[in-house]
């Protein structure tokens, strides 16, 4: 019956045989023209089977999906619970599962390990797949990603990294801010030129050979080089960067400005710190907005004669605001979705 597709003996079929035959069921449910042709022809050849076919057809048609009467309400409630958990977990480190009320802890632990293994598996597989794989952080969260070539990317809050093809060059796409520690990679062919690592952003491309640097593509675009050498490709020019160089392209001017900075100031966030040396209050405000998704209102400016230096922890917003208050001799306080500086 079902198994011998090619040689079905429909003339010997019972109502049950028809009603369980995948081709017959398909035709009844879809009523495609091809099926209609076939069954019309078949019935004119075996008119005595019409009663059987009609009963089978009626039986299949009567078996339609009826949702559980409470399904709409129940699934809406489940959806709200799912969202609550997802929001809660966005604040916790990634790849840990929240204990919920049904399933015991050992099972949760097993699931978390499976999750990590799955993660590793996909990264290894990534170079051979042309489907984009991406990582995203929410506000107040940083995430360290090990790429298939063992390069390490630390993704700052509210940022997204998408992995591209890894066939000839290594390519990633960045929205937001990330610190890259790129491993040098030799070509398999023995060619002297190493495999390029390219970071694409909306504004520019960073071409890398093996180095450490920070790329930030938010309201302003900023690349800061810690070690090694990189080349920035802009639509109209290429800029070579040396360690300690910072190139900034701000929203309005669109003209890249290159200057020398302490690169650690711009990558300290990856160690859950901000270095305040040389940062203006406006820059700090912008960072809080980008990192925590809060609006910052500056009601009072700091004394221009005081030079602010030092390191503040960013493990949590409360501690950060307290440390900033002390550093700037102002009050930083959170009120709902806003941070007031006064």
């Amino acid at each position: 019956m079902y198994m011998n597709d090619k040689h079905k003996l429909y003339e010997n079929y019972s109502v049950e045989d028809f009603a369980t035959d995948p081709d017959f069921v398909q035709w009844v449910k879809r009523a495609d023209p091809q099926g209609n042709e076939f069954w019309k022809a078949w019935l004119s050849k075996y008119p005595h089977k019409r009663v059987v076919v009609e009963e089978a057809r009626g039986l299949v048609l009567s078996m339609t999906f009826l949702p559980h009467p409470d399904a709409q309400e129940a699934t809406q409630n489940i959806w709200e619970r799912i969202n609550a958990t997802n929001r809660q977990q966005a604040e916790a480190p990634p790849v840990t599962l929240q204990p919920t009320r049904t399933i015991s802890l050992w099972w949760k632990a097993a699931a978390a390990i499976a999750g990590i293994l799955l993660l590793a598996g996909v990264w290894l597989y990534a170079p051979y797949s042309d489907k984009a794989i991406s990582y995203q952080t929410s506000f107040g969260e940083t995430h360290k990603i090990v790429l298939p070539d063992s390069s390490v990317v630390t993704l700052n809050a509210n940022s997204k990294l998408t992995l591209g093809r890894w066939e000839n060059d290594r390519e990633v796409w960045l929205q937001g801010e990330a610190f890259f520690s790129v491993r040098k990679k030799k070509r398999a062919s023995g060619n002297a030129e190493p495999v390029k690592f390219i970071v694409h952003t909306n504004t520019l491309d960073v071409n890398v050979l093996g180095t450490e640097f920070t790329v930030s593509e938010r309201s302003d675009t900023r690349v800061v080089l810690n070690t090694g050498k990189i080349a920035l490709t802009l639509p109209d020019k290429t800029i070579m960067m040396n360690p300690g160089d910072m190139v900034e392209i701000s929203g309005r001017k669109k003209e890249p400005v290159q200057r020398t900075v302490d690169p650690r100031v711009y990558s300290a966030w990856k160690d859950n710190e901000w270095i305040l040396d040389g940062l203006s209050l406006e820059k700090i405000a912008q960072r809080i907005e980008e990192t925590y998704g809060l609006k910052v209102v500056i009601k009072k400016n700091p004394d221009p004669n005081i030079e602010v230096t030092g390191v503040v922890p960013t493990d949590n917003l409360d501690t950060l605001l307290k440390a900033l208050s002390a550093a700037f001799n102002l009050t930083f306080k959170q009120e709902g979705k806003e941070v007031l500086i006064e």
Partner: peptide
Amino acid sequence: LYVVNNRPLVEDCMHDLFVYLFQHRASLG
């Protein structure tokens, strides 16, 4: 509910499944 006639359990499993999918979406096949 066709698999097991225990509504709280089915609800929990649906919750856990979709939370898992969300948390691991970047690494799903």
